[in-house]
């Protein structure tokens, strides 16, 4: 299985997410994560889809089937161009007076932030590649991770050209 991040520009209209998610389930595509948000153009939403495929033919199917949706304006496979990939994670971790310093050390090494502290826990914010996020999760397991929220991967190509002009 190979993973790619597709950046999908769609019309910012009701029903779009139904169409995209309906297509994914109907065609039985393997989706690792999906996220959506506004863009520099108020009529356009950007959907980031992280997809796992067996081979190039399956990848071609995913792209072409998505491309058929009327509300899809543009699809670029950012896995195939030089791009920056990031994911945001929020972690709620058990913390006592005794363990707080150790936790802070780990967070510093990973260049994360502690964004909330209470007597029994901290909330950590971290952005990075998926492997970095996986690594911090592993490190913090000793302290008990109470809850995880991850956004899934988003990506942007390097250089001045936006995907709508690619």
């Amino acid at each position: 299985m190979k993973k790619y991040i597709l950046a999908v520009l769609v019309d910012n209209k009701p029903g779009v997410l139904t169409h995209v998610s309906g297509l994914i389930s109907r065609r039985a595509f393997n989706i690792e994560s999906i996220s959506a948000g506004y863009t520099e153009d108020e009529d356009v939403t950007r959907i980031n889809i992280e997809v796992s495929v067996e081979d190039d033919r399956e990848l071609e199917q995913v792209v072409n089937q998505l491309g058929k949706l009327i509300d899809v304006i543009k699809i670029v496979n950012l896995g195939l161009v030089d791009s920056i990939v990031r994911e945001l994670v929020l972690l709620k971790v058990r913390a006592t007076k005794g363990s707080l310093a150790d936790i802070r050390n780990i967070v510093d090494i990973f260049r994360g932030n502690i964004v909330d502290v209470s007597p029994e826990n901290v909330v950590i914010e971290l952005t990075g590649s998926q492997s970095k996020i996986n690594a911090i999760c592993e490190m913090l397991e000793d302290f008990e991770i109470i809850e995880i929220a991850r956004t899934g991967a988003i990506a942007l190509s390097r250089g001045p050209i936006p995907i709508k002009n690619m």
């Binding site: 009701p14 139904t18 297509l23 389930s25 949706l69």
Partner: peptide, 14 residues
Amino acid sequence: IVGITTPITKHNYL
């Protein structure tokens, strides 16, 4: 109906 017909239409609207 939009939900139900999404996989069997070329496009749909509410």
